[in-house]
């Protein structure tokens, strides 16, 4: 029997927390590398399923970390992954907010914000790309992805409706 991976979960998600510029959606590829390629906590397809469940729950995008922790080490893993994913960046934010007065007008603060933005966007594009390839998909599922992307980009419709419609189509047996 292997030792509980709780400590590993804590360390890995704490590290992810500190490189999660652009939030959880930007580190989906790195979470996938950790979860599927390095640690074998889930299969490729199951990773996509967990991401889907995280999106179907209310709240911040960070819930994907909760679910990976859950797969790796049960309920304790879920709590540890969530706390580890948030604590380091929260501490950083707590202290940075105090120093913000001195920083906000500086040239390097402006350059840091403007410089990180395009890299972050490239990471979110990577996340979408990875999720699209994480499971074998027929043309119907590709169509659902494309339709959702267009609706979410072009309208202000609550994303919950897109998720509900897609789940409904699947439940009705129309996506097989």
């Amino acid at each position: 029997m292997k030792a509980s991976p709780l400590g590993d979960v804590a360390v890995q998600f704490a590290l992810l927390s500190l490189v999660a510029f652009g939030g959880a959606n930007a580190v989906v590829p790195e979470m996938h590398r950790l979860t599927v390629t390095l640690r074998h906590w889930t299969s490729d397809a199951e990773f996509a399923n967990l991401f889907a469940i995280a999106q179907a729950a209310p709240g911040p995008n960070v819930m994907i970390a909760t679910l990976i922790g859950w797969k790796a080490a049960g309920l304790a893993g879920a709590v540890v992954a969530t706390v580890a994913m948030c604590a380091p960046s929260c501490l950083l934010t707590y202290f940075a907010a105090k120093a913000w007065e001195r920083w906000r007008e500086t040239r390097w603060r402006a350059a840091l914000g403007a410089g990180l933005a395009p890299v972050t966007v490239g990471l979110v594009v990577s996340s979408a790309w990875l999720l699209a390839h994480a499971a074998d998909r027929g043309w119907k599922l590709v169509g659902v992805t494309a339709a959702t992307a267009v609706v979410a980009y072009a309208t202000k419709l609550n994303p919950l409706w897109c998720l509900a419609a897609a789940a409904g189509l699947g439940l009705a047996g129309l996506l097989g």
Binding site: A48, T145, V151
Partner: peptide, 14 residues
């Protein structure tokens, strides 16, 4: 779940 996942991916793309 597959439908949900496809939509979730679309949301990230958007």
């Amino acid at each position: 779940i597959a439908g949900l996942g496809a939509a979730a991916c679309g949301l990230v793309a958007a």
